[in-house]
Amino acid sequence: MIEARGLARTFTGRRGTVEAVRGVDLSVALGEIVGFLGPNGAGKSTTLRMLTTLLAPTAGSATVAGRDLRTDPGGVRRRIGYVAQGGGTDPSVPAGEELELQARLYGVADPAARIRELARRLELDGEGLLARPSAAMSGGQRRRLDVALGLVHRPPLVFLDEPTTGLDPQSRGHLWEHIRRLRDRDGTTVFLTTHYLDEADALCDRVLIIDRGRIVAEGSPAELKRRVAGDVVTVELAGSGAPLEQVALRARTALAGHSAVREATVLEGALRLTVDDGDRSLMSLIRALDEAGVELAALRMARPTLDDVFLTVTGRSLRDSASAAA
């Protein structure tokens, strides 16, 4: 459904040029739900805006839904649906009128029937709901309206830009259900961006991790997690008197020769270890630290998450990079 080669975009502003996306190659197959995961400012939205014809790439080429992005943007537009990050409804216009306009813009054959069908599927058929302007809707309802607008013309490929950002947990889970059903029932291919690991994990068949404008890893959530071999042990250090960084470095030295430790990273007063067979090696780790005179505040062990994958691939935590960019 999508074949992109070397897609890049540079923004030239007053403060010099910014390479938002630096050569992205990606392929998305029919009927897949693919998640584009990365921190804010990694280039997710820019890539999405290029693939949806909103932004001309400065380099590279792509075929989207069987049409060439550069030579046939109109053809791409007819075959894709796009739901922007902040939605795209006029807060004062009744939802039903927005859907009607959208249906007419795409030349949908029987707009009234299509709107009824969409409203039923996306649970927008509540009493008088479509007569309400989006300003008078709940966050979840507004988001479902945005999705409905993107689906009016039954596109085989839908782009969702951070579909669940700002939704409460219940509405999120709800929207995930709808997105899964899109694929299962209609065979729609879904390409979405997210900076939530649990979302990528729960929803996506395949995840592309993007960082600083480049794709740094790709695979199914399970595959990616397997790449982070072993379990993650986080050792929180208690620095009685001594600065934590020193304690952390001492701890790392103490564990350097340990056979189960594959990798050790110092993270603000804590030591993050990637460990083979964590259940068994935990005791000997503690002993080694104890012998080196390192005081522990807490000890945690976890199976790897996509956050760990991100950390392994980029050397930074997804949460940290997200807050740094914000």
Binding site: T52, T53, L54, R77, I80, A84, G88, D90, L105, Y106
Partner: peptide, 17 residues
């Protein structure tokens, strides 16, 4: 400007119109 901010313009620009 209001429509740019609410995303309406972008939504229309993705349509084949």
């Amino acid at each position: 400007i209001a429509d740019l901010r609410s995303g309406v313009v972008e939504r229309l620009r993705v349509t084949p119109v």
